[in-house]
């Protein structure tokens, strides 16, 4: 009997320890543009929603519902998260360049952006550049996929001619599948005839 009791106590202790193994804290903070998003924190015990700046919630274990949200001060946040926050990478730089209709020729206004793009690549010493080509909805999907690939390749050639390393650049073609300005099919829209260059 004693054996059974001690076995029972042992397994209860084991369960208790494994259930209290971890503890989590989640904090919603304003992003670099000052926008505040929204989070849901869910487990077997329930759910909490965070939608105010610096609101935090603690979770004790899987089965206990997340606690009542509490606002943290800047000092409290810094005390715990300053290392993680200091390690944030420089946000990617993004440029959008526009093209003449049904063509891989840049508009004059967009041509003027090129020196700034080259400068950004050099200044960041970036080895991580993505060019995505896009079209408006005039023409078939297949035709536009090839046209947006042409546009992306044109941009690739320009960057390489100005010193970027081909291996550092990745090209994607979206055709009419990712419109900047939503339009119905067969609509000429200058803002959709574009390449986007992301430098990370």
């Amino acid at each position: 009997m004693k054996k059974i009791i001690s076995l029972f106590i042992g397994s209860v202790l084991f369960l208790a320890v494994s259930a209290c193994g971890t503890k989590s804290t989640v904090v919603l903070v304003p992003d670099p543009d000052g926008r505040i998003g929204k989070l849901t924190v869910t487990n077997q015990g329930g759910k909490q929603t965070l939608e105010e700046a610096n609101q935090s919630v603690q979770i004790k274990n899987k089965k206990t519902a997340p606690g009542i949200p509490v606002k943290l001060s800047h000092d409290e946040i810094a005390a715990v998260f300053s290392d993680a926050l200091d390690a944030q990478p420089l946000p990617p730089a993004k440029f959008i360049l526009y093209f003449l209709p049904d063509s891989n020729l840049l508009t004059r206004k967009s041509e003027k952006l090129l020196p700034q793009i080259i400068q950004t690549i050099l200044k960041r010493k970036s080895h991580d550049i993505v060019i995505s080509g896009h079209t408006d909805t005039v023409g078939t999907k297949e035709y536009n996929y090839r046209l947006s690939l042409e546009r992306a390749k044109t941009m690739f050639d320009i960057l390489v001619a100005n010193g970027a390393v081909p291996n550092d650049i990745r090209i994607t073609s979206h055709g009419e599948g990712n419109l900047l300005v939503k339009t119905p099919d067969e609509v000429a829209e200058p803002k959709n005839r574009r390449v986007e260059v992301v430098i990370r």
């Binding site: 971890t22 989070l39 924190v41 487990n43 715990v80």
Partner: peptide, 20 residues
């Protein structure tokens, strides 16, 4: 996911700490 909860995200920035 943390060991004891799942965070659903409707934008944009958040911080997480998991203590063992």
């Amino acid at each position: 996911q943390t060991p004891d909860a799942t965070i659903g995200i409707r934008g944009t920035q958040f911080l997480v700490k998991v203590e063992i």
